[in-house]
């Protein structure tokens, strides 16, 4: 958590400048809203908690009394919009900055609204299009955290344990001994794997909904896979081998490890497309034929994956083509 140090840095700078002229410090948190998410309320709550803490920190740093010229304002912004790309976040921030006459934006070096998808650098890049000064607070990061293992909560252990136990029993013969061995196995699995199993706190409601939507997604994916294979069979068995391979870039509008992985794997399984690498949300995709590229940018799969992870409203976001992404020409 470098936020604490970032606040300290900002307050220091503020006090310095306040010696000469009035200074307003705005601490804003861009709400990670998915207005359609069942968690929207909780997220907004977390945002205002953070801002409350920041207010306390500011008091601490100013020694209890704020200098005359210094005004401190906190705000949650972007709460009523669906934000899915760094440029959306930049829009919200710049609009706010413009509104309040702000001439310098300081970013926390660990700010990552995209979960484990790195977003700071693209965000900085997007912010640079306006003439506001951008900087990352020059604070030391404690140590590079390992991304894989996180301290696991009881709920994570319980979820992993429950899922493994259920899976074990499904495959067992339901003898009393199976209940015992299943319990031991599930406990072992939970202890070993719970710390790496989820990147976020699992919510049973969300997992349930995603499972149901995944079941709706499965037949669609199977159909796409069947079509894909007939096309591959046609291409491979055709005497002339009519292929026209090309690597294209797709900037997909999905967030989070699970959604990105699902989309990447779905792309690999379907018509003539193969995910080569994923950085941030930029997919590098090898496509076998021109028709495959067309389908990719029609965005059917991407939309379906958004439906699975975020619900029906999110599925309505524009296709990659409508967003102005036609692949190949984007500079990543």
């Amino acid at each position: 958590m470098t936020v604490r140090n970032t606040v300290a840095y900002v307050v220091d700078r503020g006090i310095e400048l306040a010696a000469d002229r009035p200074v307003e410090l705005h601490f804003v948190d861009v709400a990670r809203t998915r207005a359609v998410d069942p968690d929207a309320q909780a997220e907004l709550g977390a945002a205002s908690d953070l801002l409350d803490r920041i207010e306390l920190w500011v008091e601490e740093d100013t020694g209890g009394e704020t200098p005359e010229n210094l005004t401190v304002i906190t705000d949650v912004i972007g709460a009523n919009q669906y934000l899915f790309s760094p440029s959306d976040y930049a829009d919200v921030l710049l609009e706010y900055a413009d509104d309040k006459d702000i001439d310098r934006i300081v970013l926390d070096p660990e700010y990552s609204p995209g979960g484990s998808v790195p977003m700071l650098r693209p965000l900085e890049f997007e912010l640079a299009r306006d003439d506001v000064e951008i900087e990352q607070a020059p604070v030391d990061r404690p140590t590079e955290q390992t991304v894989l293992a996180r301290a696991a909560s009881f709920r994570k252990y319980l979820t992993v344990f429950g899922a493994s136990y259920l899976f074990y029993m499904l495959l067992s013969s339901w003898k009393p001994i199976d209940f015992a061995t299943g319990f031991l196995t599930a406990a072992l699995v939970a202890v070993l794997l719970a710390p790496i199993a989820f990147s976020e706190q699992p919510s049973f409601g969300r997992i349930g909904k995603q499972t149901i939507r995944m079941l709706i997604y499965a037949p669609y994916l199977l159909k796409e896979i069947a079509v894909a294979n007939l096309q591959i069979a046609y291409v491979v068995l055709h005497p002339d081998l009519p292929i026209d391979p090309e690597v294209v870039e797709l900037r997909a509008a999905v967030w989070g490890d699970a959604a990105v992985t699902t989309l990447a794997n779905s792309i690999t399984l379907t018509p003539g497309t193969l995910t080569v690498s994923v950085t941030d949300r930029s997919f590098s995709i090898h496509s076998l034929t021109a028709g495959a590229r067309e389908d990719l940018f029609e965005g059917g799969l991407e939309r379906a994956v958004r439906f699975v992870f975020y619900g029906r409203d999110a599925a309505a976001i524009a296709t990659p083509r409508e967003r102005g992404d036609d692949g190949g020409h984007s500079d990543g």
Binding site: I225, A226, A228, N229, I232, A233, V236, L237, L241, I243, P245, V247, T268, L269, T270, G272, L274, V276, H286, L288
Partner: peptide, 30 residues
């Protein structure tokens, strides 16, 4: 068996590692 065969033929006929991975990943899975 047919799609397994397609995968095998694809791996032989297609020109490079990426295109071959297509055959291996899709046809082979199906």
């Amino acid at each position: 068996a047919f799609f397994g065969g397609v995968a095998a033929i694809g791996i032989v006929r297609l020109p490079d590692i990426y295109t071959r991975a297509h055959a291996a990943s899709k046809s082979d899975t199906l």
